[in-house]
Amino acid sequence: MKTYVITGGTDGIGKALALTYLERGHEVMVVGRSAEKGEAWLEAARHHGAAARAHFVRADLSLVSETRAVIDRIRTAFTKIDALVLCARHFRTTRLVTAEGFENTFAHFYLSRFVLCHELADVLEAANTPVILNVAGPGGDGEIHWADMQLERAYDGQRALAQGGRLNDLLGVGFTDSRPETPVRYVLLNPGTVSTSFSGQYTPAIATQIEAMRRSAQLVDEAIAPILKVLAAPPAAPLSAMVRGERLDPHGPGFALEDARRLREHTKRLLAACPEG
């Protein structure tokens, strides 16, 4: 029996993966912000006779304090994690600053993933073939705004998400660079456009566009098939990147080691200055 921790596990790809692994007899912890959806997940587990193997943690991952509370719960529940699957994402049309002083998309989409990856590394390393699957859209053309990473001067929801994808690319590079002997395989994955809930705060015009995207997007069950294969047999390389099943060079443009190290040091400074840092 393996242990899976899935953020964004009450919706879309995360939920489908969580239910699949539960049905296969594994232990699964999902993390989400909705207590109602969490209870629905636990009810589904009871329906499958798997209540003892199903766990839900309610958390707002835009807050470092709540992300670290999740880590505490994981450490209490498990001595090892076979796979950490990062799916949580939330779009915001308008800029929001969290109670800890971070721009919401930056905190939720990137900072929480940094904290989870680095602070759970030892629990992952206790497993035989551990893997981190970061569903973040590798290889995108977003720009990293080094002088204004939290977009105080020119916030745009799409720009924030696109930058977040690039930051997660560098997170993967930085993770493998900082732990050269780790057995953890790090996989950056872009599943393409999938018909999920598209969690977010949208203007009416953007909501109409999102609905049109959802109608033409691939179904969740179709999208998770290649993801299940990757998690069943992680690549041998320490770092891999994939776009809809096709390999992407994780050493090419957008994956510069010097940028990854720069971002890692910047992030460590932010966390050290955070009230929960």
Score class of each variant (00 low, 15 high):
Pro226Asn: 08
Met149Gln: 09
Arg113His: 14
Trp146Tyr: 13
Val70Ile: 06
Gly101Leu: 03
Leu188Glu: 11
Val30Lys: 01
His26Asn: 08
Asp60Leu: 02
Thr3Val: 09
Leu189Val: 11
Asn190Thr: 15
Ala52Ser: 03
Leu86Trp: 10
Leu271Glu: 09
Ala237Cys: 11
Tyr21Leu: 03
Asn190Gln: 13
Thr176Trp: 02
Glu222Gly: 03
Gly12Val: 05
Ala18Ile: 09
Val57Ile: 08
Ala212Trp: 13
Asn190Glu: 14
Leu86Ser: 04
Arg185Cys: 02
Gly174Ser: 08
Pro238Tyr: 04
Ile132Gln: 01
Asp11Tyr: 08
Gly8Ile: 06
Lys229Asn: 10
Ala232Asn: 15
Val97Ala: 01
Glu23Asn: 13
Asn128Leu: 06
Leu263Arg: 04
Ala45Leu: 05
Ile6Met: 04
Asp122Arg: 08
Arg185Glu: 12
Arg269Trp: 14
Ala52Cys: 04
Leu111Ile: 01
Thr67His: 07
Val123Thr: 06
Ala127Ser: 07
Arg185Ser: 01
Ser34Ala: 05
Ala59Pro: 12
Phe109Asn: 08
Ala162Arg: 13
Asp122Gly: 00
Tyr4Ile: 03
Ser216Cys: 02
Phe198Gly: 04
Cys274Ile: 13
Leu231Asn: 10
Gly192Tyr: 11
Leu161Tyr: 15
Asp60Phe: 00
Leu189Trp: 15
Thr76Asn: 09
Val5Glu: 00
Glu152Thr: 14
Ala207Lys: 15
Leu271His: 07
Pro180Met: 05
Arg33Lys: 11
Thr98Leu: 06
Phe109Cys: 04
Glu100Pro: 12
Leu42Ala: 00
Asp169Cys: 03
Val64His: 01
His47Asp: 12
Ile227Thr: 13
Thr196Gln: 09
Leu170Asp: 07
Ala107Val: 11
Arg261Asn: 06
Gly174Asn: 03
Asp82Lys: 02
Ser240Gly: 12
Ala77Ile: 11
Val220His: 09
Phe198Val: 06
Gly254Ile: 06
Phe109Met: 06
Leu189Thr: 11
Ala212Ile: 13
Pro275Arg: 08
Asp60Asn: 10
Asn190Asp: 14
Pro234Cys: 04
Pro226Met: 02
Val243Gly: 09
Ala236Asp: 15
Ser62Cys: 01
Thr98Gly: 04
Glu100Asn: 05
Ala69Asp: 12
Ala59Glu: 04
Leu170Asn: 00
Ala54Trp: 12
Asn134Thr: 07
Ala225Cys: 10
Val115Gln: 07
Asp249Gly: 10
Ala52Asn: 11
Leu116Arg: 03
Ile206Arg: 10
Ser62Met: 00
Asp82Gln: 08
Thr20Ala: 07
Val131Gly: 01
Ala127Cys: 06
